[in-house]
């Protein structure tokens, strides 16, 4: 009787994946994030919402140390992935990013073939031992990204030749081909039309089975649709964090309520 747990029970069983404590981010002299504390669960979709410039993308980029590529950025505080501080000196950001994959706002396929785009990660990390295995990884990733049926006959064509929605799903396939543990998505649907958005959202829900997904979005409907946990950021601070159903129906902070009802933001 308990062999097939319902989503609700699975949610309660979820373990902690990422814990952030006292995270502060500075760009030069300007403070972009103030004292953020968040617990992100495994096998859960966590949405970051908030008005533009509130720091949600900045925080997302802290989770895989993409801020390292910005020369003026400085991160303080502690972010633990599976109990290990990712800002520890011994952690190699390159290894970290293989574990914490990222999908960007604008689809950014490499100017290579569809196959080469997806096999890029597995190749540089040496995840496969043979061409057949690599083929299998590419196919699985494209299937998981719901793109396989559309591109299986033209794997050698340029990834940049696909439509916008297909390109974004290709980028998702590329990210999951490295078999990450966490998938970060920075407004993945903002450049897509409603149909492509619906496809990507459906995909996000399926990805939850294998990864912890963190998504930044401007659309509150999207956050409500796809996430189980929601964090609301405002002016560089984390205002409220909790179950999505709770945040959207009964927010405890007046700023959250104002944002959700459309009075600020």
């Amino acid at each position: 009787m308990y062999d097939a747990p319902t989503p609700e029970t699975r949610l309660t069983q979820n373990t902690l994946k990422i814990t952030a404590r006292g995270v502060q981010v500075y760009y030069g002299d300007k403070q972009a994030l103030k004292d953020v504390n968040v617990d992100i669960l495994d096998n859960t979709v966590t949405a970051f919402i908030g008005p533009s410039g509130c720091g949600k993308s900045t925080f997302l980029r802290c989770l895989n140390r993409m801020n390292d590529t910005v020369a003026s950025a400085r991160v303080e505080g502690e972010i633990m992935l599976d109990g290990e501080n990712i800002y520890d000196k011994r952690v190699d950001p390159v290894q970290l990013r293989a574990k914490v994959g990222m999908v960007f706002q604008k689809p950014n396929p490499f100017p290579k073939s569809i196959y080469d785009n997806v096999s890029y990660g597995p190749k540089i990390h040496g995840l496969t031992r043979s061409k057949a295995e690599l083929d299998q990884v590419v196919e699985d990733s494209l299937r998981k990204a719901a793109l396989w049926n559309e591109v299986k006959d033209r794997l050698n064509e340029a990834g940049t030749g696909l439509s916008g929605g297909q390109q974004q799903r290709l980028c998702i396939a590329r990210a999951i081909a490295t078999s990450p543990e966490v998938l970060l998505m920075d407004e993945p649907c903002s450049a897509l039309d409603p149909i492509a958005t619906a496809q990507v959202e459906e995909l996000i829900d399926e990805l939850r089975a294998s990864f912890s997904v963190v998504i930044v979005t401007h659309s509150m409907q999207q956050a409500a649709r796809v996430s189980q946990k929601t964090a609301f950021f405002h002016l560089g601070s984390l205002v409220e964090y909790g179950d999505t159903s709770h945040i959207f129906t009964n927010p405890s902070d007046p700023r959250t309520e104002s944002y959700i009802t459309g009075r600020i933001g």
Binding site: T69, R97, K106, G121, H125
Partner: peptide
């Protein structure tokens, strides 16, 4: 070469020289 291509490559855990060799130089 657009920064987004670099980000894409770094985001997959590529090092600088891998990014240069496999993404930036071809582009």
């Amino acid at each position: 070469v657009p920064q987004s291509l670099r980000d894409g490559s770094y985001g997959l855990g590529a090092t600088k020289s891998e990014t240069v060799r496999q993404v930036i130089l071809p582009a």
